[in-house]
Design a binder for these strands. Sequence first.
DNA 1: TTATTCGGAAATTAAAAACA
DNA 2: GTTTTTAATTTCCGAATAAT
Length: 257
Amino acid sequence: MSQAVKRACDACHRRKVKCDGTNPCRNCGTAQLGCTYNAVPQKKGPKGSRAKVISELRENQRQTSLAVRVHNRISGLEPPPSEAATPGLLTGEIVRSCLDFFFTHLSHRLPFLNREQIDQQIPNMEKNRDVYCLLSSLCAFTALQPGMAMPGIQDDPQHSMSYNMVASMLLLEDTLRVRKNYELLDHITFNALATNFFILACYHSHEAHDKAWFYLREAITMIHLISMDKEEQYRGLDAGEASRRRRLYWLFYVHER
DNA sequence: TTATTCGGAAATTAAAAACA
DNA sequence: GTTTTTAATTTCCGAATAAT
């Protein structure tokens, strides 16, 4: 191929033909067109964070992977949960949809999370298991709520089992799988307690009350281990944070009754 | 037949990431 | 700092189609 001209004229550009770069160029001359070079060239090269496409593809693949696995589980193709590590199911899109739903419809009943604080943690979800577990359990819980539309998942009226219910189960299994791989008690966090809350709420909805009870007792034990039942633990925290912690603490106690 | 259109390969460019 | 990788944009080849 002959050397490409540095800049093709407006007409050659539009016509997708080789321009000689002169003014008027040969093509415009023979076609009796006015030869102009008015078009402002766009900036070339990646914009914003690099690898946008590849991360978008990964995201899409993982998202379909939840949708595919929901379908497979319902059709009996999905193998039972195994110990083997699988890539996390959670995607940015799922998290965003669930958080939007949670903070619009649920957080007034469960006022122990702060949207801003959660949003700040999202970028760490892949690296930080504590954050991953909180978000995946929150999504598992949100998936169970009437009116929640999980991204990429549509209910099939032919099946008696709700697709959202299966998505919730898979996300819950994912939470527990990730959780099993780190020592929770080394450093008991507020995220870990909130995760317990969502796990037990999911088990309640799944009618698995014994498991729900187990995670409630586990949370109560953790609360005692970090003395969250003592008022002095809240000193030094800002008022909002302290009140959110108290609310979670009381939610556990109300559930225990 | 020649002229024109346009899908998309290849080249170019620049920003982000990796490296020294 | 320099080099490499990646992505956005541009040029224009050449097949398809239209006009003559």
